[in-house]
Deep mutational scan, measured.
Amino acid sequence: TKKDTKLYCICKTPYDESKFYIGCDRCQNWYHGRCVGILQSEAELIDEYVCPQCQST
């Protein structure tokens, strides 16, 4: 049987260590910077990140 692979981001793909991720400070989920429109250089300046799903609630 195929091992359950945890899926990340709004694009629902397995973790890829070569890509940049940003963690939501509300739901603790991880998102590709590219998918949520945040560059790694911008993320370093953000104190708290809230993902699109949490922003809409």
Rank of each mutant, 00 (worst) to 15 (best):
V36P: 00
Y21F: 08
I38F: 07
E17S: 11
N29P: 01
R34N: 15
P52Q: 12
E48F: 06
D16H: 03
D4W: 04
K3Y: 06
C27K: 01
T1S: 10
C11R: 01
D16A: 04
C9H: 01
C11V: 00
K12Y: 09
G33Q: 13
G33M: 04
K3L: 10
L7S: 12
T57L: 03
C24W: 00
Q28S: 14
T13Y: 03
C35V: 00
W30A: 15
R34Q: 14
Q53D: 14
I10K: 07
R26W: 06
T1L: 06
I46D: 05
C24A: 00
E48D: 07
W30S: 13
N29C: 05
C27R: 01
V36T: 03
N29S: 12
G23L: 08
D4A: 08
V36G: 01
P14D: 03
C24H: 00
D16F: 02
I46S: 10
R26N: 15
Y8D: 15
C54I: 00
T5D: 14
D16W: 02
Y21W: 11
E44K: 13
L7V: 11
I22V: 12
K3E: 14
C27P: 00
Q55N: 10
E17R: 05
T13C: 03
C11S: 00
L45C: 10
I10E: 09
Y15T: 05
L45P: 05
E44I: 07
D47H: 15
I46G: 06
T1R: 06
I38Q: 04
E17Y: 05
D47K: 15
Y49C: 02
Q28C: 15
N29M: 10
Y31H: 03
Q55V: 08
T5Q: 12
K19R: 14
Y8A: 15
E42C: 09
S56M: 03
P52N: 12
E17L: 08
K6S: 12
E42D: 13
C9E: 00
T13I: 04
T57D: 09
K19E: 15
C51H: 01
C27H: 00
C11Q: 00
E44P: 10
S56Q: 12
I22Q: 02
E44C: 09
L39S: 13
L45F: 10
R34Y: 10
G23R: 09
D16R: 03
V36I: 10
S41G: 10
Y8C: 12
Q53L: 12
C9A: 01
Q40R: 10
A43I: 14
K12M: 08
G33D: 06
K12D: 07
C35R: 00
T5S: 11
G37E: 06
P52R: 12
V36W: 00
V36Q: 01
T57G: 08
G33V: 10
H32C: 02
A43T: 09
G33F: 07
I22S: 02
P14H: 06
Y21S: 08
Y31W: 03
Q53S: 10
S41C: 07
Y8W: 08
K3N: 04
T5G: 08
I38A: 04
S41Q: 11
W30Y: 15
V36Y: 00
Q28V: 06
S18Y: 05
C27W: 01
H32D: 01
Q28T: 11
Y49F: 11
D4S: 13
C24L: 01
Y21M: 15
C24R: 03
I22K: 03
Y31V: 05
C27F: 01
K19W: 02
T57H: 08
I22N: 01
L7H: 14
G23S: 11
K6T: 14
D47E: 15
Y15V: 06
I46T: 13
W30Q: 15
K12L: 09
G23K: 09
T57A: 14
D16K: 04
V50P: 03
G23V: 06
P52T: 11
H32P: 00
C11G: 02
C9I: 00
T1H: 06
Q53I: 15
E48L: 09
V36S: 02
E48Q: 08
G37P: 00
Q28M: 10
I22Y: 03
T5E: 15
I22G: 02
C54K: 03
Y49T: 04
C24F: 02
T5L: 10
R34K: 15
E48V: 13
G37T: 03
I38G: 04
T1I: 09
Y15N: 03
D25T: 15
F20G: 06
K19C: 06
Y31N: 03
F20H: 10
C35P: 02
C27N: 02
E44F: 10
P14G: 04
Q55Y: 04
C35M: 01
K12I: 01
C51M: 02
Q53H: 13
G23N: 09
S41F: 08
Y49A: 04
Y8V: 11
I22M: 06
I10D: 06
N29I: 04
C24P: 03
K12T: 10
I10F: 05
C51F: 01
D25V: 12
L45E: 11
I10C: 06
H32K: 00
A43S: 09
D47F: 07
D16N: 08
G37S: 11
H32W: 00
G37R: 07
V50Y: 05
A43G: 12
G33T: 06
N29L: 07
I46H: 10
V50C: 06
S18P: 02
F20Q: 10
E48G: 10
C35H: 02
C24V: 01
Y8S: 13
S41E: 14
Y21N: 09
Q55L: 08
I38L: 13
D4Q: 09
V50D: 06
Y8K: 15
C9L: 01
C54S: 01
P52V: 13
T1E: 07
E42V: 06
G23D: 10
Q55W: 06
P52D: 15
L39F: 13
I46W: 08
W30R: 15
E48N: 15
C24M: 00
E48M: 08
D25K: 15
P52W: 05
E44H: 13
S41I: 03
